[in-house]
């Protein structure tokens, strides 16, 4: 699974989303960050809808 998240601009954003997903059972979370475009590519294994809700709960939006 892969999601594109906008508004990610630093390593703290990466840590925040990684922790939020992993703590809720989403596995193999990997995030590659494009700091200039403020976009993060989130790849993972697990429930996509759950992952979207968790990411949005942290205050981020998906593209």
């Amino acid at each position: 699974m892969e999601l594109i998240v906008k508004g990610m601009h630093c390593k703290s954003c990466v840590m925040l989303i990684t922790d939020a997903l992993e703590e809720n059972g989403i596995k193999k979370v990997k995030i590659s960050l494009d700091e200039k475009k403020q976009i993060g590519k989130v790849s993972f294994e697990g429930d996509k809808e759950k992952a979207i809700k968790l990411i949005e709960a942290e205050g981020y939006h998906l593209i």
Binding site: H9, C10, S12, C13, M15, L16, D19, G59
Partner: peptide, 13 residues
């Protein structure tokens, strides 16, 4: 501490 995300990460920690 640069942004809200840093504060959130450290709050959780």
């Amino acid at each position: 501490l640069e942004c809200d995300s840093c504060v959130k990460v450290l709050t959780k920690t």
